[in-house]
């Protein structure tokens, strides 16, 4: 049995601030995981990663992270990616604070 492709999102850190961002279907970088493009096909995933890697003036360290569909868009599946959607757990710092004001 061939392994099924686990859906992915493209994620990276913003070059200037370091914030965690996700690539949207319309080629924006968003802070919100739910706005990311959920990629269900391996070949498309590689293309999107290439596209991301060409944006070195905006972002750093793009990679594909496992995700799954949810009611409000893609959701992370691993706890590391879940922490990356928010920020640290010891202070209300990072995106969890920044997104309060959006």
């Amino acid at each position: 049995m061939s392994r099924r492709f686990t859906p992915k999102v493209v994620t990276a850190n913003r070059l200037r601030e370091g914030d965690v961002v996700y690539l949207t279907a319309d080629d924006r970088w968003t802070l919100v995981h739910g706005e990311a493009e959920l990629i269900e096909d391996e070949a498309h995933a590689q293309l999107r990663l290439l596209h991301a890697n060409a944006q070195g003036r905006l972002i750093v360290g793009a990679y594909l992270a496992d995700a799954k569909p949810g009611p409000n868009g893609p959701e992370p599946t691993h706890f590391r990616e879940e922490f990356r959607t928010r920020g640290p757990s010891n202070y209300h710092h990072g995106k969890q604070a920044d997104l309060d004001h959006v």
Binding site: R16, D19, V20, R57, H93, K95
Partner: peptide, 25 residues
């Protein structure tokens, strides 16, 4: 910042100056 250095070129330079990229910043 102006794009003349790629991250591959810049990374060793920033590390030499104690600057890491962590999870959130």
């Amino acid at each position: 910042l102006d794009g003349s250095l790629t991250e591959e070129e810049f990374r060793p330079l920033r590390l030499m100056n104690g600057l890491y990229l962590q999870l959130h910043a």
